[in-house]
Design a protein around this nucleic acid. Structure first.
Lengths: 372, 372
DNA sequence: TGCCACTATGTAATCGATTACATCAGAACT
DNA sequence: AGTTCTGATGTAATCGATTACATAGTGGCA
């Protein structure tokens, strides 16, 4: 443990060697009790200015940092928040995570990430983890509660801690939902495409049980209707938000004899994969087919052609979710649902359909990088 | 999870209500002492098969999960690992993180992420966090120790826990380094470009103090030398690995009167941004200028044209770093340095220079998506 | 002056697991 | 048979902070 020598004083008062500084050490140095030290930290107004000063002085000299395990054991708080997401390696989440982290950090909370990766064991693990009180709250990006399917089947595991749903709403759960209006956004994009003259607008979907997908699909149908266009099931191509599924969708399109003039992909990844496939097959984008995406990830602006898409305020989504959770953790009230604004980002991958426009194949690039 | 029988009794003997199950509850139910329960969990071979069976049965029935704070307080272990990285929203890190998380999860460790974001306060916070024993170990992706600059200046903060450097080596630190051979990889790519006939190969750098950058730059110079090409400082264009800096580099190139025939970008992000700018300016890639990247992020394969690059085994890098750290945490020896293999991924953004090849502008696409 | 209210502080119980040490039964060895 | 060893288990100390409760001191007010 310690070197007990003659001139021991391994740390006259500082930290340099050996064992960590305990609250006892600080108390002794400040000539107060441990209770006073604890109070000076937690509620400074409850100790006299003199004692407070001595305590802070002692803390500074020793470099004392409270032992979180001890604190947590007694106070039943961990100052940790769990962020549950389906796939950490998905670009879409990284900016959101950053927004979350920023806000949590400001509020003094740490962030534990759980990448479920579709694994039930992992999910069970983190459910237990949560139930074990290892975190004070959680932000769920995976569209369902622990122990429940996306459809709200099954009994949600009792967590006993505040939860917030982010991006993928969990309608069956009575927790705050932070999201965008997916339906309105999809509607808007669809109407935009129609307004350019497209009469045959394909839709590349997300995974079937996904609530984002359901909303966006509704929006797409509404958009068609509002534009006086019929809904054609043959124009719905299955996808799952990944680049690979975009590539597949593109291959599907390429082989069709009657092709739509525009494709609305419900993620930028799919749009980029799809575009790539179309271009490889010798089709022109947007000359032969216009392609629109969803999310506005970093690469959308530098895709070739630059991708027309729906911008989600990703960082802000993360920040908002974190703020709401912190409010809950600290006993403040919070709204049940927050919708953040999206924005149509018009770039070069969408143009009026060829047969309506007599212009040559060379697309009219409206901007080099960021039009908005 | 399961449908419990007709008589619900969600937890006949589990947490009767409200409060969490304690080791005491399990012990009572299994008719053993708490010590035996603890041992059954930590070292099953030290308890008799019968007792062990009763304990596990009781655990299953109660849904007991050890209180981590209590465990941590006593055993001085947190089963948490800190991952320090400079920018969470960078695509490059996400797959690495996933690799780390996978391996840590298998070994029973949780992952706390700290996104330093270039903020000294954040860094100080996490240094204290670490010093406070809140994690058992850390994986550093930011190229320097706490309290130290990238150049090894300053006294590294005493953490007292195992550390591992990942991707960005920390030469001054005596900790395991997991990385790729950046120099060899850059050398190889440079020689590859030269072997196609390129005599004027530009280099878009990373940030100046970055050790990756230094290594890659050396590799570039060595590659030139090995190919009998002179090094021309005018062909070195500053960058910082971001898309935006790639765009800037592209703008620089576009305005030059004498342009290189090939550009080696030290990140895919820059390569994609740069390509975009060249294309927008009416240049052809690889017709007029070949562009190569580094990293092989997901988007490289679907960029237009598909990007020739150096593949880093990102997931494996993460897994390896996590494995090494877990070894250290569990007292096993570990190698000081691990170099993982990279791979040259040949796609469509690189071709022989125009003046050497009489073929038309239409580039010969060797593959649609993934040639390798 | 005597009593109350209030503030500042100290004492010690407490959180829930791990683990050093003690105990005991039975096997193995002399 | 007596001694030692081994393996299985229980008892209770321990980790370091928080906090309920107790106590001392101070000022106000009748």
């Amino acid at each position: 443990m310690d070197e007990s020598g003659p001139s021991v004083r391994p740390e006259e008062d500082g930290a340099p060697s050996g064992r960590a500084v305990r609250i006892q050490d600080v108390a002794r140095l400040a000539d107060v009790s441990t209770a006073t030290v604890s109070r000076a930290l937690a509620s400074p107004e409850r100790v006299s200015p003199e004692a407070r000063a001595r305590v802070f002085e002692a803390i500074a000299r020793t470099g004392y940092v409270p032992n979180p395990a001890a604190r947590s054991l007694r106070s039943q708080k961990t100052y940790m928040v769990l962020v549950v997401l389906p796939d950490l390696s998905n670009t879409f989440f990284s900016k959101i995570l950053r927004g979350i982290e920023e806000r949590l950090f400001e509020a003094g909370y740490g962030m534990i990430i759980s990448d479920l990766d579709g694994s039930p064991e992992k999910e069970a693990h983190f459910a237990a983890f949560t139930a074990a009180g290892r975190v004070d709250g959680a932000i769920l990006l995976n569209g369902h509660l622990f122990g429940q399917s996306r459809d709200g089947e099954g009994t949600p595991a009792k967590t006993g801690i505040p939860l917030v749903a982010l991006c993928e709403a969990i309608p069956s759960a009575d927790i705050p939902q932070i999201e965008i209006d997916n339906r309105a956004a999809a509607n808007r994009m669809t109407q935009y495409l129609a307004s350019l003259g497209h009469r045959s607008i394909a839709y590349v979907s997300g995974p079937p049980n996904n609530i984002l997908e359901r909303e966006r699909f509704l929006g797409y149908q509404e958009g068609l209707k509002a534009s006086g266009l019929p809904f054609d099931p043959a124009l719905v191509i299955p996808g799952d938000y990944t680049i690979a599924s975009g590539v597949m969708a593109g291959q599907d399109l390429v082989t069709r004899s009657r092709r739509p003039t525009a494709v609305f992909c419900t993620s930028d990844e799919m749009a980029i994969g799809l575009t790539r496939t179309l271009l490889s097959a010798g089709l022109r984008v947007p000359g032969d087919i216009s392609v629109a995406g969803f999310d506005d990830i970093e690469f959308a602006a530098v895709a070739e052609p630059a991708l027309t898409t729906v911008r989600q305020p990703r960082r802000e989504l993360g920040q908002t979710a974190a703020s709401v959770l912190v409010d809950l953790l600290q006993g403040r009230p919070s709204p049940k649902r927050i919708l953040l604004e999206t924005e149509l980002v018009l770039r070069d991958s969408v143009a009026p359909p060829q047969n309506m426009e007599k212009a040559p194949a060379k697309s009219t690039r409206t901007s080099a990088i960021k039009p908005t």
